[in-house]
Design a protein around this nucleic acid. Structure first.
Lengths: 262, 262
DNA sequence: CGCGATTTTGAGCCATGTCAATCGGAGTGG
DNA sequence: CCACTCCGATTGACATGGCTCAAAATCGCG
């Protein structure tokens, strides 16, 4: 388990059962389901009741979609929030000599804010896949004049939680060994994806290349590959065709907690 | 130069002239000067006018002091802010096996908020030296009902800037070599201290042990020592009795920018 | 079938970590 | 003033994790 509270995994093979690419569910139905899951995850993170979730539904007005690989312009005004309903983003800084540090990923259920890709962070947001977002209207983010609603407070909590992931990343880079870093990232992604029903306890799919992993974990591409081989040989983890499989989730969780003895 | 805008260094030996420990200036005078410098730095970071600074003066009501080494309880309510007028703090997380990651330092002119040392970050705040703080009253932090004052907006900017330092730290840990990390940290501290008149372009004093440096930079204590020796041998930097001297500031700035070719 | 992107592997080197010891200054008690 | 101790800085010898370079294998796709 990484940051935050422990998720529970409903059915062992939540996302494995239904084939993803060849799905036949009608487009808008699938979209609606995606939106619902994103809202559910958001409310979970925000510790909001379902009643509050109701208020979020009508706000699904301004959609925006980004193509895979696109540079994403975050909302200008900081009282605007965009909810990711599907797809992955990453935030990164590029150094003059070509090095790249990926600060983190934004997944369905996460909020894109003006803080992302700001000039002060010298970072930019990129779409890792096709990404669908929905704008949540301004009134929600900032306490509207008179009082702060439970909704706005919840959103603030969710945002805070998102931002606090940076602390985990800092520990990962500063203190963890290569194996631990990998385990930590995998567990983080699994837990976050589980909140939107896109991961079971033991597997999920991730649109990441080993180069992304390298630039996230502060390792060389080649070493990432070796670490993955080690984990595979130790029967802890496999990644094949973008499908991540945790063979021994408990051991990985221990590694990720930095509690495996060093 | 690290994050943010370029500081200018008024007189080459700003802080070197006046002996610090044996100072004779009357206590309250010195305190007042410290407060003024902290406010000046804060306004600088917040891009606030001096007129706004005026508003900050009368708020100097609730002082609080922490002893060196003390665990510091951050403000509970997040609309409370404490301005550091003197002394250093650091925020860190301790791992079960004894490893420690220092996330960053809080210096005079910085604000201590409820976000520091929060449960979600699993971090704690420690006083590195004796620390004096002044509470800025609630009305300032949150836009008070009707409108957001330029003051509250400025404070929000300052806070954002503070939080964005994490990005720099992430790059430092993820992409930089040991030498670059050291240079980056030193330059960051120098530039921030310069804003409160506690650093010249070429020197400042820092209450850090090599162990603090190690836990900040993700290096072993011993390697920190070696890196310092290298930098000393290359005539770039010396640290002696807590006095940091930048022998070749330009070269260090290059290193710190990650632009020294790798 | 062929090409570009990604993954995998091997060989060798260097940065960084670990272990063990010494050294130096600051305080403390005699 | 000395002996002692503690903490931090320093150093050396050695081990190793992670990096670089170079090349092959594999996959995705037109």
């Amino acid at each position: 388990m990484v940051e935050g509270r422990k998720p529970h995994f409903p059915s062992e093979t939540a996302s494995k059962g239904r084939p993803r690419g060849s799905a036949q569910m009608s487009g808008s139905n699938a979209q609606f389901a995606a939106f619902q899951q994103a809202v559910t995850a958001l409310c979970d993170a925000a510790r909001l009741s379902l009643a509050d979730a109701e208020q979020l539904r009508p706000l699904r007005d301004r959609h925006e979609t980004f193509a895979a690989g696109a540079l994403v312009q975050p909302p200008q005004r900081k009282d605007r929030l965009r909810l990711i309903t599907s797809g992955w983003l990453y935030e990164a800084r590029l150094l003059p000599d070509g090095r790249r540090q990926i600060f983190g990923y934004l997944l369905p259920g996460d909020l894109v804010t003006g803080r992302h890709g700001a000039r002060t962070t010298r970072s930019a947001l990129f779409a890792l896949t096709r990404v669908d977002t929905t704008e949540l209207t301004a009134a929600l983010a900032a306490a509207p004049g008179a009082g702060r609603t439970s909704l706005s407070e919840g959103l603030a909590r969710a945002l805070e939680q998102q931002e606090h992931r940076g602390y985990g990343a800092l520990v990962r880079l500063g203190q963890y060994t290569a194996q631990e870093r990998m385990a930590h990232l995998i567990i983080e992604l699994r837990d976050r994806l589980a909140r939107v029903g896109q991961a079971s306890r033991t597997s999920f799919r991730a649109p990441l290349t080993q180069e992304h992993l390298a630039d996230t974990l502060g390792l060389s591409l080649i070493h990432v590959n070796r670490v993955l081989r080690q984990l595979r040989n130790e029967n802890l983890l496999t990644i094949k065709f973008g499908m991540v499989t945790l063979l021994q989730p408990e051991k990985l969780e221990l590694l990720a907690a930095g509690a495996a003895g060093r």
